[in-house]
Nucleic acid binder design. Structure first.
Lengths: 131, 131
DNA sequence: GTTATTGCAAACAATTTGCACCCAC
DNA sequence: GTGGGTGCAAATTGTTTGCAATAAC
């Protein structure tokens, strides 16, 4: 298993930088397109392989759209999402309520927490009034 | 848009009951297999169509395995998960830290919260010692 | 040299869709 | 009879894998 502190391979580093640069979360496909042509361009398979490794190293977090696409973001970007179950639009929530709270549970005793994902679902303003 | 309070169709009700009955989260495939043969048995397409509707009505929550499969659970079951990024095993966390905390953010003002998903990632006991 | 990483194309699997049929009202 | 819900099978799509070539150390 790759050690947490390691830099990772060049390609992994590149993906991570690309994600850091981006304002928003990116899919594997987007990362692939985005790096295409560039000197560091890489095949789709490599993109996915490295995204998985980055996730295993706790450097990258992902969530899934209803379409099944995975959206990736660096874990150090501490933001979460508000998604409308009706229209599917998402807004970013800068605040993270978890960090104001100690997670205290017997289950976490033997578990080394690295990051978490938190997503709120509900109805956006538009959909409330439309409904 | 279906109203939040509605009972939904018979099939939706059946799926919801099946999920309530189950101790653990279920995939679409499992629900399909599980209902097959039974009088209420339904095609795979119908299972997915109705799961989507249940999610839109805020009655069902889902999270995705690294494999891309979606796991469904009733929203009223207030549990979350602890997933090991290395071996992928998951434990259930009965406590929900969010409920002890008011989510106070400008973004949530016009948003009607229905439910949320929260998942912790890190290293389980085994993988910590192995690494 | 040995081992891990890559690219390509083929394979995979979960999910979605087209369409004809059926049911409820 | 009209509109929505359903089953089936086909199509779609994101992701993974096999394998030979390549780069890392």
């Amino acid at each position: 298993m790759e050690q947490p502190g390691s830099q990772g391979t060049q390609r992994q580093q590149l993906l991570l930088e690309e994600l850091q640069k981006s304002q928003s979360e990116m899919t594997g496909q987007q990362l692939h397109r985005c790096l295409e042509g560039q000197p560091g361009g890489m095949g789709l398979a490599t993109v996915y392989r490295n995204l998985r490794k980055l996730h295993q190293q706790g450097k990258v977090r992902c969530r899934h759209l209803p379409t099944g696409e995975a959206l990736y973001a660096p874990v150090d970007r501490d933001e979460h999402h508000l998604t409308c179950v009706n229209c599917g639009t998402t807004q970013t929530l800068q605040l993270c309520p978890i960090h104001e709270l100690k997670v205290k549970a017997p289950e976490t005793d033997n578990f080394k927490l690295i990051f978490h994902t938190l997503e709120f679902f509900g109805l956006c303003n538009r959909c409330q009034t439309k409904g």
